[in-house]
Simulated assay, not measured.
Amino acid sequence: MTADPRVKDVGEIRTEHLFDMVVDLNPRLPFGSGPFGRRVLFGAAGGTFDGPGLHGDVLPGGGDWALFDPDGTMALDVRLTLRTHDGALLHMTYGGRWVTPPEVREALANPDERLRIDPADYYFRTNPLFETGAEPYAWLNGTVCVGSGYLVEGGIAYKVCRVL
Rank of each mutant, 00 (worst) to 15 (best):
P5V: 05
P5Y: 01
R6M: 05
R6V: 13
R6S: 14
G11K: 08
I13L: 06
I13T: 15
R14A: 06
R14E: 02
H17R: 04
H17G: 00
D20Y: 01
D20W: 00
M21P: 05
V23H: 01
D24M: 01
L25M: 12
N26D: 12
L29A: 08
L29P: 03
L29S: 11
P30N: 03
F31D: 07
G32T: 14
G32L: 06
G34N: 04
P35T: 12
F36L: 10
G37R: 02
G37P: 02
V40F: 02
G43P: 15
A45W: 03
A45C: 08
T48R: 10
G53T: 15
H55P: 02
G56F: 05
G56M: 06
G56L: 01
L59E: 10
P60F: 08
W65Q: 10
L67F: 07
D69S: 00
D69F: 00
P70D: 14
M74I: 10
M74G: 04
A75T: 15
A75L: 04
A75Y: 01
L76Q: 07
D77G: 09
R79T: 13
L80M: 12
L82E: 07
L82M: 07
H85S: 05
H85K: 00
D86I: 06
G87A: 09
L89R: 11
L90C: 12
H91S: 12
G96N: 10
R97S: 05
R97Y: 08
P102K: 11
E103P: 04
E106T: 13
A107D: 15
A109F: 01
N110I: 06
D118L: 00
Y122I: 00
Y123C: 04
R125W: 00
T126H: 00
T126A: 01
L129P: 00
L129S: 09
F130G: 11
P136I: 03
W139T: 13
L140K: 04
N141A: 06
G147A: 03
G149N: 07
Y150E: 13
V152Y: 08
E153T: 15
G155C: 12
I156D: 14
A157L: 08
A157N: 10
Y158S: 02
K159E: 15
V160C: 04
C161R: 06
V163I: 15
